[in-house]
């Protein structure tokens, strides 16, 4: 079970209160882009064994989207940050590095 703290409302809950939204920080390629870029945006996703950055939604709570850094092996949550961030904050990267998983 994952315990997640929503960075929007500050409420902590377990994972059934949230809805997963897949890989975070995708760069969107729309009309006019190369076919390869569009296919990559639409279909190809990372499937890492270790730290992963994901989108989540506080579906049963405040309803807001946000980002979570999570280890897919140990299920450790390194932290959550707002959907407006385009890259993981340094403190979360430091926490991941401190686990020797940079």
């Amino acid at each position: 079970m994952l315990l997640i703290t929503c960075p929007c409302c500050g409420v902590s809950g377990e994972e059934t209160e949230f809805a997963p939204g897949g890989e975070a920080h995708l760069k969107r390629f729309g009309p006019g882009s190369e076919e390869g870029e569009f296919a990559g945006y639409l279909f190809y996703r990372k499937n890492p064994k270790g730290p992963h950055f994901e989108r989540w939604r506080h579906a049963y709570g405040c309803g807001k989207w946000f980002h979570v850094a999570r280890d897919t092996v140990t299920l450790e949550i390194f932290g959550a940050y707002k959907a407006t961030e385009t890259a993981p904050p340094q403190e979360i990267l430091d926490r991941i590095a401190a686990r020797g998983k940079a």
């Binding site: 059934t16 209160e17 049963y60 709570g61 405040c62």
Partner: peptide, 10 residues
């Protein structure tokens, strides 16, 4: 206050 899930619904 808590806004959450009860059983299977919000």
């Amino acid at each position: 206050v808590r806004r959450t899930r009860l059983g299977q619904v919000a």
